[in-house]
């Protein structure tokens, strides 16, 4: 009796890990996430579209060899590798020094605005932080990937992802405060 039950549960686990959706269904389900991550990665919508198109092409070619687990992180990983290889050819973009992002303690900002920052400002602030932190924040906080999925997509351990995410949020917060200060001065 025990053995039969044990075997049954093992079988269902095996089935669960080997069930693979058709590629078209996965594309439909993940396209918007892929595109948004690409926009944040490239900081440019046209380049992002090209990057997603190339990612889908590579993913379609590799779909048969893929085991079907975590398709979202698998596709983001392909996208990131593709972006990195294209980036190596072009040369590195602007970088942000950690010194630039120490938080100005402007408490008035937090008291006054009662959080009505627009998506555009958040996008601008995100574009101004380094790529590795930006991707961690976009995947975990905006696209709701689990830590495991995001770490898998970036090819790093969960601990590394956590520290990139935490540092990224701190930088983002500092950037938002800086934007608000600029805005107040311009007024």
């Amino acid at each position: 009796m025990f053995q039969v039950l044990g075997w049954g549960s093992h079988k269902s686990k095996v089935e669960a890990t080997t069930t693979k959706k058709p590629f078209e269904d996965v594309v439909k389900a993940e396209l918007s996430t892929l595109y948004r991550v690409a926009v944040r990665l490239c900081r440019n919508e046209t380049t992002a579209e090209d990057l997603v198109a190339q990612t889908l092409f590579l993913a379609a070619k590799g779909w048969q060899a893929f085991d079907g687990n975590y398709p979202r992180s698998w596709m983001i990983r392909i996208m990131r590798n593709e972006y990195a290889s294209a980036h190596r050819k072009v040369g590195s973009g602007p970088t942000v020094s950690i010194d630039e992002v120490s938080e100005p303690y402007d408490d008035l900002f937090w008291r006054e605005i009662d959080w009505n920052i627009s998506g555009t400002e958040i996008g601008r602030a995100l574009d101004a932080i380094p790529e590795e932190n930006r991707l961690a924040v976009v995947m975990c906080d905006m696209e709701s990937l689990t830590r495991d999925e995001a770490a898998d997509a970036l090819g790093v351990p969960v601990g590394t992802l956590n520290s990139r995410l935490h540092r990224g949020r701190n930088m983002l917060r500092a950037k938002l405060v800086a934007f608000h200060t600029e805005y107040q001065e311009a007024k």
Partner: peptide
């Protein structure tokens, strides 16, 4: 900060999505 990120508007462009859905893949 986290709650602003979560509620940030997610811009979706139908035209881009259609092009991508019918792309070379």
């Amino acid at each position: 900060t986290v709650s602003a990120l979560r509620s940030a508007q997610k811009v979706e462009d139908e035209e881009v999505f259609n092009r991508l859905l019918n792309g070379s893949w």
